[in-house]
Amino acid sequence: MKKHLLSIDDVSADDVATLFETAAEMHDVQRRQVKKLPALRGRTVINLFFEDSTRTRSSFEIAGKWLSADTINITGKGSSASKGESLRDTVLTIAAMGVDALVMRHAASGSALQVSQWVDAAVINAGDGTHEHPSQALLDAYTLQRRFGTDGRLGSLEGRHVVLVGDLTHSRVFRSNVLCLTKLGAQVSVVAPPTLMPSGVEPWSKELGFATSYDLDEVLPTADAVMMLRVQRERMSGGYFPSAREYTVGYGLTRDRLATLGPDVPICHPGPMNRGLEIAADAADAAQSLVLDQVSAGLAVRMSILYHLLAGEGSTS
């Protein structure tokens, strides 16, 4: 495994299998009364969050703590540029405290990659702008593999039709997921109105091998899994679509659409959900919804990521 986790491009399909194998073991730990493992005792993990986050930050924090790492949160809103300090100075200052891993979230695409070139610590990208969110994609894939497996064993995504719907242009979850799911052999369709389809998606989708559509109802009948992505309400003021109502009619997982899905088709959402906008409450709370499974899987996968990047430092899988 590479030193950093900046993009899904940094891990091979074999790496993902290794990560998931460990994640499954970590998952079992969650059910124990005493959840702490000594694996990362004496290691320091800093959660460096330049952008608001509750679930990802606390997930990484708990993951680090259950592995006995010293976990510290540093949050700072706004770019360092607005404070007159360069990003490089900010992260060098933090790295100088003797850090083993930096879990970083920043509003700017590419910032995690830049930081990895400046510091010695392992850098884990916990979301860089509208670029990537690799731990989210890994936990999504892991959640689906568990869902498709039997007897507690992980299933396969090979040939499974996974449909991603939402604000693709501004979604780092989409970018990491499309890389991860295609890597694992899934058949991927992405659906959005034309204004929220990333620019230049055609050559990209051909190269990577995923399908694009403006018509959710055309794609949904063959779905083996559906991932709804958050649509930020402020996109409306950007003129990306005329109204929440119109978006929901075109691209929401409504009660009507839920009824057309088979009962075994899992529904995922990275959260936070806009109930009533991209996902109806009935869909969010349906038996086939994996939304809360994603959260617990997130802990297991993040424990595995921290373990593989830190415990075996210097060795390769």
Partner: peptide, 15 residues
């Protein structure tokens, strides 16, 4: 430049 790379990199496009 708004195009395939801006879409992939998640950088604000300048068409």
């Amino acid at each position: 430049h708004e195009g395939e790379l801006s879409g992939r990199l998640g950088l604000p496009g300048w068409p």
